[in-house]
Design a protein around this nucleic acid. Structure first.
Length: 325
DNA sequence: AAAGGTTACAACCGCACCTTA
DNA sequence: GTAAGGTGCGGTTGTAACCTT
């Protein structure tokens, strides 16, 4: 139980609700001249009838000059989905990898758009029936592309919503279609499982992601942005058992190759996820599976130039192209 | 054109963590 | 060691704008 706190100020006299332009101007002007100092005392000194907490929130989420406004780019969305798989609802942690975006922005994006789309996309995946199937069939997607990202992310979404997830068997028209994700992998004595970063019981899904191209992309990005220490990253990777000959090991090899051959100049402080995504795409060139992350993400967000859900239907139709393992 | 529904975003609330005296 | 202050975080709510009927 949290300690009882004295209020930031006299709440009785405080204004609440939407901030007026005048209030914004006062706050900006004051912080420009004095810095925010102690938030509790700021409103009085700045002549604002708001709580210090409210001032802080307004500044942090809206008025800060380095805040990036406008719609999220597909690359940003990809990063958010990846990071949500690793961090869960740790919005601040996710935001720290997206300069200019606030935890509130990301939280809103997730709760209002991504969550819903991921749920519906996963539903479509689970209810898909191969046109050529005649009887129970197992459809395994071979690679954690956008589809798998979506699937894994939606697994978390559905877990949060208390819905059934992975390896679901669905009866459709008398036929059972089984859909499995390849991402889960065997883990031995992985202390990561005890990490708050990974939620049970779906931790293996996310560990799979971690060892996948998605994780590879993230690790590279994390190194460059300094979000995770090199030590933590390598330790985490070492804690995962890679089975010889497994797809996961192949992917890990691909990631290592990709990472070692990454001779691109060091990125500056600004975040450039597209570079990493492209580098990763190159690293999986041998894989037959092709997927357009950009397009899928446009779909996810209903970007203006997409064709609505038609793209998803098209993508779903390609599932039968996957090799059955 | 109006009413009702939906969406996206801003803001609030309560709790937890960290620091300091 | 502990209490209190300051701050950050995640969940939730409120509301304006937009869409549909």
């Amino acid at each position: 139980m949290g300690k009882r706190k004295t209020p930031f100020c006299d709440m009785e006299k405080m204004k609440r609700g939407v901030w007026s332009p005048e209030e914004d101007a006062k706050l900006i002007q004051y912080i420009k001249e004095h810095g925010h100092g102690t938030w509790r005392h700021l409103p009085k000194q700045a002549g604002i009838l708001r709580s210090g907490k409210s001032c802080r929130l307004r500044w942090m989420n809206y008025l800060r000059p380095d805040i990036k406004r406008g719609p999220f780019a597909p690359e940003e969305v990809a990063t958010i989905i990846q990071l949500h798989g690793l961090f869960g609802n740790k919005w601040a942690a996710i935001a720290s990898h997206l300069p200019g975006r606030t935890d509130n922005d990301i939280k809103n994006l997730w709760n209002t758009r991504l969550k819903k789309h991921l749920q519906s996309m996963n539903h479509n995946l689970l209810t898909y029936q191969s046109p050529s199937s005649s009887g129970p069939s197992t459809v395994k997607s071979d690679f954690p592309s956008t589809r798998q990202m979506v699937k894994c992310a939606s697994a978390r979404v559905e877990a949060e919503a208390g819905l059934p997830i992975e390896s679901s068997s669905i009866k459709t028209g008398g036929e059972s279609v089984r859909v499995e994700a390849e991402a889960p992998l065997s883990i031995q004595s992985s202390s990561l499982l005890n990490s708050p970063l990974v939620d049970k019981p779906y931790s293996d899904i996310y560990l799979g992601l971690w060892n996948s191209i998605v994780g590879g992309s993230f690790r590279k990005t994390a190194r460059k942005s300094g979000g995770l220490s090199e030590n933590a990253i390598s330790q985490t990777s070492l804690q995962m058992k890679l089975e010889p000959g497994s797809i996961v090991e192949d992917q890990a090899k691909a990631n290592r190759t990709s990472a070692s051959s990454d001779t691109a100049p060091e990125q500056d402080d600004s975040y450039k996820p597209k570079v990493d995504m492209m580098a990763v795409s190159d690293s999986i060139g041998s894989n037959e599976f092709t997927d357009s992350s950009d397009t899928a993400l446009k779909l996810l967000l209903d970007f203006p130039d997409d064709d609505g859900m038609e793209f998803l239907d098209e993508q779903m139709g390609n599932i039968s192209d996957f090799p059955n393992l």
